[in-house]
Design a protein around this nucleic acid. Structure first.
Length: 602
DNA sequence: TCTAATCCTG
DNA sequence: CAGGATTAGA
């Protein structure tokens, strides 16, 4: 029989083949491109909010209030934001930004037209009331004092038993060290609470959740300490609200100048935090979140069912494991299983650094992550392009590159959003006046997203933009983000096809004649290459259907090369076409916005 | 002409 | 992985 007979109609064969596979596997509901997907965000922008000044003003106030509260809270959480050394340590921990985020700025759309971020407006020309500053200072000191007391009271107890459980025998204190931002020693990160509300109440809830945590603490404290705690709590609450009120008052009276004011005040507190380095993910794994304990870590081999070799073996014939020298060794990814989780405490740093960015020195682009490379420009703003009706503010754009953690979405979705997003006429001035215009609005893509995208590649090689939108609900999609993601997948494919070609050629030179002998199995070298590329750390079990597709791709390459088709400059095109039709459905779990955590938990 | 994907490079 | 150039298709 003609050994190639099965390949005469590669396309149909492939399709039916795949169908079989996926049938016997799991039948997942077809998410497919949800045609009903909402249109691009930018098409929504000039909405009713623009027409209603009152609304806007309200939002504006709320936004400010929320922000101030957050700031104050941040102060509460940081025992000593003053210590420069601490700041540095924190910086290095907090921002697992990646090099990738650096460059992106260049191509990012920036606001167009004459309204270019007139810096003069942004940085208030007047200086705010020293009273506020004073109060903040005072308050800060008070808080530190209180915290010290609390620490002293709590310490002896929680070394014995931290509520955070015995995660690797690590006490809560070490957690504190780890996340560098200093959180309550006994507290698990309250950020775990998902506060989804997109309005001010989000902040309130957040605070409430903290209180709840605290209220559990006393269990571990002696009664004396408890009493102390009680009173401290009261004081704290009072002080905080007082501060908030006064600050707010100030803000209301002086909408244009308060920024600078705040910025200056904080500058005194956190001198070094001007720059928020986002260390290229250099593998450094910082994951202060206790919940990051991955199940798979416990059973290193579990993720890779090596015993599962029987999986795809349509033929009884001897399978050719792609590489004669296959190495059946376990895929032990780096023990570091940090699914690129971003420390939740970043949000606090960001808030501070943002404020600082608006200090005397002006534009906060100066505090973007180390842009050692060619980053030079605030000027890139001028290179912007019109993105239809929506013009993003420069700062917003910068924000995009900013490695925002998902974990901070709660805060970022706070009220600022509407005000920052729009930009037209008179409102422009108002928006410019906002101190924290950008940060929380646009969520750029972070390492977690990249990780997720890579895993998704196991299911889909050619995702549509609608599909991406559906699976990255926590991403504010715009043209740039979309193309960046598309680019990611393009890069993924590139690597994929290169590997395929490479191994196909290798098989040929190894004397393989029957393409059907080429199977990508979990113990093959090709698989290892792919797995390390898309699933580093091996924290995800590669679906069988991917192996099937990979085998097929390999065979196609083999066939093409062995028949000399590779002399044609575009000989790969047909293969691409075939493979592009073999995308399968992506598990629903991928739609979760908090992907890394949730996925690994299950 | 425009968009999108690939190719090529760093 | 991102940026830029190139190419293919609409």
């Amino acid at each position: 029989m003609d050994p190639h007979s099965g390949l005469l109609s590669p396309l149909s064969r492939a399709c039916s083949h795949l169908a079989e596979i996926c049938m016997e596997g799991e039948r997942s509901p077809s998410p497919q491109e949800q045609g009903s997907d909402s249109p691009f965000p930018w098409s929504l922008v000039p909405d009713s909010s623009l027409a209603d000044p009152d609304w806007f003003w309200d939002e504006h106030i709320q936004a400010k209030r929320a922000r101030v509260e957050t700031i104050v809270r941040g102060m509460c959480l940081s025992p000593d934001p003053l210590v420069p050394g601490n700041v540095r340590a924190r910086d290095s921990l907090c921002c697992p930004g990646r090099a990738q985020e650096r460059k992106r700025k260049q191509s990012l759309p920036v606001q167009q037209g004459p309204l270019k971020s007139s810096p003069a407006r942004g940085h208030g020309s007047r200086k705010g009331g020293p009273r506020v500053r004073e109060q903040l200072h005072l308050l800060k000191q008070q808080l530190r004092h209180l915290q010290e007391h609390i620490l002293q009271a709590a310490e002896p107890q929680d070394t014995a038993q931290g509520p955070g459980g015995s995660e690797k025998g690590r006490g809560p204190l070490s957690v504190k060290q780890k996340n560098g931002c200093g959180s309550r020693p006994w507290a698990m990160d309250s950020d775990h609470h998902q506060v989804s509300s997109g309005d001010l109440s989000g902040v309130e809830k957040h605070r409430v959740s903290e209180v709840e945590y605290q209220s559990e603490e006393p269990r571990f404290l002696r009664s004396a300490a408890r009493a102390l705690l009680e009173s401290l709590r009261k004081e704290l609450t009072g002080a905080v609200s007082q501060a908030v009120d006064s600050v707010l008052q100030k803000v209301l009276l002086d909408p244009s100048g308060h920024l600078t004011q705040l910025g200056r005040s904080f500058q005194g507190l956190v001198p070094e935090s001007k720059s928020e380095p986002s260390p290229p993910d250099g593998g450094a794994c910082k994951d202060p979140l206790p919940l990051a304990a991955l199940p798979r870590r416990a059973q290193p081999q579990a993720g890779v069912p090596l015993g599962n070799l029987s999986l795809v073996k349509p033929l009884d014939s001897p399978r050719y494991p792609v590489s004669p020298r296959m190495i059946p060794k376990p895929y032990q990814g780096p023990p570091a299983n940090c699914p690129l989780t971003v420390p939740s405490h970043i949000q606090e740093n960001q808030i501070l650094s943002q404020l600082l960015g608006h200090g005397p020195n002006g534009h906060w682009s100066s505090c973007l992550p180390q842009d050692s490379s060619s980053q030079s420009h605030p000027s890139s703003e001028s290179a912007l392009q019109p993105w239809g009706a929506v013009k993003l503010r420069p700062s917003v754009l910068s924000q995009q590159q900013y490695p925002l953690p998902f974990t901070s979405t709660r805060v970022e979705r706070l009220p600022l959003l509407p005000s920052v997003k729009m930009e037209q006429g008179g409102l422009q001035a108002v928006t410019d006046a906002l101190p924290f215009p950008s940060v929380h609005i646009q969520e750029g893509l972070n390492p977690g997203h990249l990780k997720k995208a890579k895993l998704m590649f196991f299911f889909t090689r050619y995702p549509s933009s609608n599909l991406l939108k559906a699976y990255f609900p926590d991403v504010q999609f715009n043209r740039c983000i979309i193309s960046q993601m598309i680019k990611w997948f393009s890069n993924f494919r590139e690597f994929y096809y290169i590997q395929m070609e490479k191994f196909a050629r290798q098989a040929i030179s190894d004397g393989v004649t029957n393409p059907k002998m080429l199977m990508v199995l979990r113990d093959s070298e090709l698989f290892r290459a792919l797995n390390t590329h898309y699933n580093r750390g091996n924290d995800f079990e590669v679906p069988d259907c991917f192996l099937e597709i990979a085998s097929l791709t390999l065979q196609e390459f083999f066939r093409a090369v062995s028949t000399g088709k590779d002399s044609d400059p575009s000989w790969k095109k047909p293969i691409y076409k075939i493979i592009s039709k073999l995308d399968s459905d992506i598990p629903e779990i991928f739609k979760s916005s908090s992907y890394p955590q949730e996925l690994f938990r299950n």
